[in-house]
Amino acid sequence: METLVQAIISGLVFGAIYAIMTMGLTLVYGCLRTLNMAQGAFGMVGGYAAWMLTTQAGAPPIAGLIAGAVAAAGIGILTHFISIKPLVGRKDIDFEMTAYISTLVVAIMFSASIILLFGARNKAIDPLVEGRLKIFGTVSVSWQQVAVAGVALICLGGLSLLLNRSRQGLSIMAVAQQFDAARLMGVPAGRVYWVTMALAGLLGGIAGVLLAPLYFVSPSAGDLPILKGLTVAIVAGLGSIRGTIYAAFVIGLIEALVATYVGSLWSLPVLFSLIVVFMIVRPYGLFGKPEEERL
């Protein structure tokens, strides 16, 4: 019983991180029709920014979180201008495939640049808060996990406010729904594009800083998050915001339960085989649009 509760708690915490991680992918796919393979690299860069500010310069952890988010947002805008903008609207290429390749290569370039700047060694980073919170019996949560879940929920809430209430957010939604109509209504699509990428960078950076104390800050820190993000996005159906949140928590829970009861080595293969089965049953994801052409 206590193991179960412990597993569920850790699953929910990871689900929250996956949710903000994948939300970046979802927003970018919905708006730009690009599967942004650099999303993991945003988190990696955010982790490095936080590490520089906290461990190197001695700033408080919350400053590291903000710095990581801002740095990653900047990297997001950079990614847009070097790898996506040159491809938009071209007739002689298949946009989705080309943008996929170019963002993948940009992610590799970011890792290589980070190795050039900081070396390949892992960097340790302090958690946002220390200590553990006892709930009952042997069940306890570290305050870090509480903080992670809190920050993630604040991000999701803020995102939903932004998307549904603000002018900028509404224009993102408009572009995602109907590109041509949005342009005809006077939505500046060019600006919406880079704002979306900045937003995705922001979310990726926050996720990266939140994950950094659990793993390490390293040049390959983006690999695992992007893999998890992809699995969540597959299950959710690309471009579906509601689906992303559900799928993130479902996958976080499955992973934690498998890791607790079967062994952490098995969590990835089990997850992957579940996804293969799932894809055969619902090829467009949990909330993807079935009318999208599928084969």
Binding site: M97, L227, L238, L268, I275, E292, R294
Partner: peptide
Amino acid sequence: SIRLRGIYASMLTFAFAEV
């Protein structure tokens, strides 16, 4: 991944390789 539309197939195969 044969049943899937382009981008989903790419995600599935990429995830397979990573796993």
